[in-house]
């Protein structure tokens, strides 16, 4: 059901659960209900270990939920919503991979750049896998991110901040419907973090991408106009079970 002018749900989740257990400590993430509309900018705030990354990974289809009520994904207006749970159940990871490569850009906490590729080729990686031609997008992104004169260098010749900008460039280069960013500025000093974050959100606007952002601190993004997801973490006695409930 298209509701017009960009306000249609790109993600629609009901009763999605992911359970994990490590060293006798159980962890459970519950999502009773989550709707993310096209073009929204979502912030997921919480301390480390609260399950932010788990939710992001599920939204990027790189982590399979333990139990699913509904997990629907509609990247483009007018297309049928895809039942991703069915793909997971069938083990059809290639469909998930195809969805991801076309519609999702992912900014990792520490860049995740390939050391053997130049900055240009790292940014172009997400385009190259889709077979997109060079059309100046890479150069434009580099210009906007202030790394235009680094395009020929390898990642190990860049500063941490510059590497994060390359990672942002790569996540946006194929003009995805969604950009998922897991603490993209955690390794930067506050001033650089602010700088990179506003560059990122500005470019996401320009590319008309939905943004889902995880951060451990609300204060340095609260001025950026993001919708914050409701989020509650409880620890049982003796810390045997940590449960996080996210909805929005």
């Amino acid at each position: 059901m298209a509701t017009g002018s960009g306000h249609y749900p790109i993600y629609l989740l009901h009763d999605v659960v992911k359970k994990r257990e490590a060293k006798g400590v159980a962890f459970r993430l519950k999502v009773p209900s989550l709707r993310i509309d096209r073009g929204e900018k979502i912030a997921l705030i919480g301390e480390s270990g609260s399950g932010k990354s788990t939710l992001l990974d599920m939204l990027a289809f790189v982590l399979q939920p333990s139990a699913v009520g509904a997990f629907r994904f509609r990247p483009e207006e007018g297309e049928d919503a895809l039942d991703l749970d069915a793909s997971w159940q069938r083990g059809n990871l290639n469909i998930l991979g195809d969805m991801r490569k076309r519609h999702i850009g992912y900014v990792m906490q520490t860049g995740g750049l390939l050391p053997y590729l130049s900055v240009h080729d790292n940014i172009n990686l997400s385009r190259s896998v889709l077979g997109l031609r060079l059309d100046g997008t890479v150069e434009h992104l580099a210009e906007m991110l202030g790394i235009a004169d680094q395009l020929k260098k390898r990642p190990d010749a860049l500063s941490t901040g510059e590497r994060q900008r390359v990672a942002i460039g790569r996540a946006l280069a194929h003009r995805p419907a969604i950009v998922i960013a897991d603490e993209p500025t955690a390794s930067l000093d506050p001033y650089a973090a602010q700088n990179v974050m506003s560059l990122f959100l500005g470019l996401a606007d320009e590319f008309n991408s939905t943004v889902i952002l995880a951060s451990h601190a609300w204060y340095h993004i609260k001025s950026l106009g993001l919708r914050r997801l409701a989020h509650r973490t409880t620890r049982s006695k003796g810390s045997k079970l940590t449960e996080t409930v996210v909805s929005g």
Partner: peptide, 9 residues
């Protein structure tokens, strides 16, 4: 990373 950008297994 290659898988994340969409290369198949």
């Amino acid at each position: 990373v290659l898988r994340l950008v969409g290369y198949r297994t």
